[in-house]
């Protein structure tokens, strides 16, 4: 298949994705579909494979088995242009602490080959409520400020697929509200948003669907009840099936 000059897609489909690290299997036959205009939550205990799944979906890691399709494209088939449509905020914030907020954003804007860099950077700084600290080095920022900056870095190129790993970490109440509003706007804009989180109460009501990943296997949580209740029921069911293995 020839490589596209401009690439876009309206859904991401993972089919039977497994990923092993040596003898340890982090993901086991994971299949999921995320569509444009929906926010999907990915929950699960520590070590369940959530970050590994984000790594695979972001094209940073290749699945050991199975494949991920971005619309009609695979990561291998689409090449580097696919990465222009992926925004990834990982738990580690992927910022350079010695650079200022403005320099960090400008650097990544350059790496993504964006036009109107100054205007985009200014807008991102304003959205992150960091305009007054734009020329301060990131080293001196609080976790919440870094988190806001990292989120803007991940969204700077208006990606189609937005992958967020624990985006609420370190945010105060107003910043959480601002992020929730931001995610709602991304949904309205037709973006595909996948959020990994432990903040079940925070995202309850925001998510269109919730998936649970446990021991490398994925299941969709039922639609009724609060997210915490649904999560608890699912964990209990899974534990009883496994003969009482704790969550």
């Amino acid at each position: 298949m020839p490589r596209p000059s401009h690439l876009d897609f309206d859904q991401v489909v993972a089919s039977g994705v497994s990923r092993s690290y040596g003898r340890r299997r982090a993901l086991r036959h994971v299949s999921l579909c995320c569509r444009g205009g929906e926010i999907v939550g990915l929950v699960g205990p520590n070590g369940a494979g959530k970050s590994t799944l984000l790594g695979v979906l972001s094209t940073l890691a290749e699945p050991s088995f199975g494949e991920v399709r971005y619309g009609k494209w695979t990561a291998r088939g689409a090449g580097t242009r696919l990465r222009a449509q992926i925004g990834f905020l990982s738990h580690e914030l992927q910022l350079y602490p010695e650079l200022t907020a403005r320099e960090n954003l400008a650097f990544f804007a350059g790496m993504y080959g964006l036009d109107k860099v100054d205007a985009r950077v200014e807008a991102a700084l304003e959205t992150a409520a960091l305009s007054d600290r734009a020329d301060d080095v990131v080293e001196g920022f609080s976790r919440g400020m870094r988190q806001r900056l990292a989120l803007e870095r991940a969204l700077l190129h208006t990606p189609r697929l937005v992958l967020l790993d624990e985006p609420f970490t370190g945010l105060d109440e107003s910043a959480v509200a601002a992020l929730m509003h931001r995610l709602s706007l991304l949904r309205t804009d037709g973006r595909i948003v996948l959020v990994v989180t432990h903040d079940l109460d925070t995202v309850d009501g925001l998510l269109d669907r919730a998936l649970m990943l446990r021991h490398g296997r994925i299941r969709e949580l039922p639609a009724t009840g609060t997210l915490r209740e649904r999560y608890r029921v699912e964990v209990q069911e899974a534990s009883s099936k496994l003969g009482g293995v704790s969550a």
């Binding site: 940073l60 242009r81 992926i86 990834f88 580690e92 910022l95 350079y96 602490p97």
Partner: peptide
Amino acid sequence: ERERYQDALRGLLLAPVD
């Protein structure tokens, strides 16, 4: 080492560049 700190290397590798 400086790319490893805060996992900036992943940020670099995610960019649509050769």
